[in-house]
Simulated scan of single mutants.
Amino acid sequence: MARARSDSPPLIEIIEKPDFSIEARAMARGQWPVAGMDEAGRGPLAGPVVAAAVILNPARIPTGLDDSKRLTHIEREELFSAILATALGISMASVCAEGIDRSDIRKASLEAMRRALHGLPLKPQLALADGRDVPPGLCCEGQALIKGDQRSQSIAAASIVAKVMRDRMMAGCGRTDARYGFEFHMGYATPRHRAAITTHGAVARWHRVSFSPFRLDAPEIDDESLL
């Protein structure tokens, strides 16, 4: 006997949104303040890796916090302003392309997060880091959360701050040197960026020359997908 066919979709994608539950459990244990940490710019061929650390105000958490990659440019900008207006503490730090070349992108990302955490106006009791690694040398206990920007609102807030600040820095690079179109691709390996590197070569202190040969063998990214 044939099985009746369902008119429902075979798969339903469930998109989880970050919440404040991890932070609330830490607060119940007496660990407060809690900071979220995240970075932006691990994959590009140019520009710094930028990290942010954010301590949210539990009574004034902006609506709509999410992984910055799941937000539009306008949504990120609006949430960036809301975070700056409501958070108890915000700090940003970066490691430049030369610093990345001297070590590697993983170490540079962790160092940027460590610097951001140490720059907070309040000393946290717990730091939540997006990813698999806790940055070494923190001033408090650290906890790594895989896909943390999709689980913790504090990390999501940090991801938004880091992304917006890095995009603004790359737009500034584009205004300084218009040959590469940094304001369109933010330093990623798009066809436009690859073509500019082929024509003009690397820009000292902007391009990550250790990404040999500028990672031109990496998969191409459309400029429009980064907006």
Rank of each mutant, 00 (worst) to 15 (best):
M1A: 08
A2S: 09
A4L: 12
R5V: 12
E13G: 00
E16L: 14
K17S: 06
K17A: 14
I22W: 10
R25N: 12
A28Q: 15
A28D: 13
R29A: 08
Q31W: 14
D38S: 06
E39Q: 10
A40G: 14
P48D: 06
A51T: 01
A51Q: 01
A52E: 01
A52F: 05
A53C: 06
V54R: 05
I55Q: 08
L56T: 12
L56F: 07
A59H: 12
R60M: 13
I61T: 04
T63F: 06
T63L: 10
D67L: 01
D67F: 10
D67K: 04
L71F: 05
I74E: 06
E75T: 08
R76E: 03
E77S: 11
L79A: 02
I83N: 04
T86N: 11
S91M: 00
A93N: 01
C96R: 10
A97Y: 01
E98D: 13
I100R: 02
D101S: 10
R102W: 07
D104M: 01
A108I: 06
S109T: 15
L110C: 07
E111W: 02
A112Q: 01
A112I: 02
R115I: 09
L117M: 11
L120H: 02
Q125T: 11
L126Y: 15
D130N: 15
V134Q: 09
P135E: 08
P136D: 06
P136V: 06
E141H: 08
Q143K: 09
G148I: 11
Q150G: 12
R151S: 10
R151I: 08
R151K: 11
Q153H: 07
S154Y: 04
I155V: 08
A156N: 03
A156D: 02
A158K: 03
K163Y: 02
V164T: 05
V164R: 03
V164N: 02
M165R: 15
R166L: 01
M170I: 13
R175E: 10
F182H: 08
F182I: 09
Y188D: 03
P191C: 14
P191H: 14
R192L: 15
R192P: 00
A195I: 09
A196I: 05
A196C: 02
I197R: 03
A202I: 14
V203L: 05
R205C: 04
R208Q: 07
R208M: 06
S210W: 00
F214I: 04
A218D: 08
D222A: 15
S225R: 15
L226V: 08
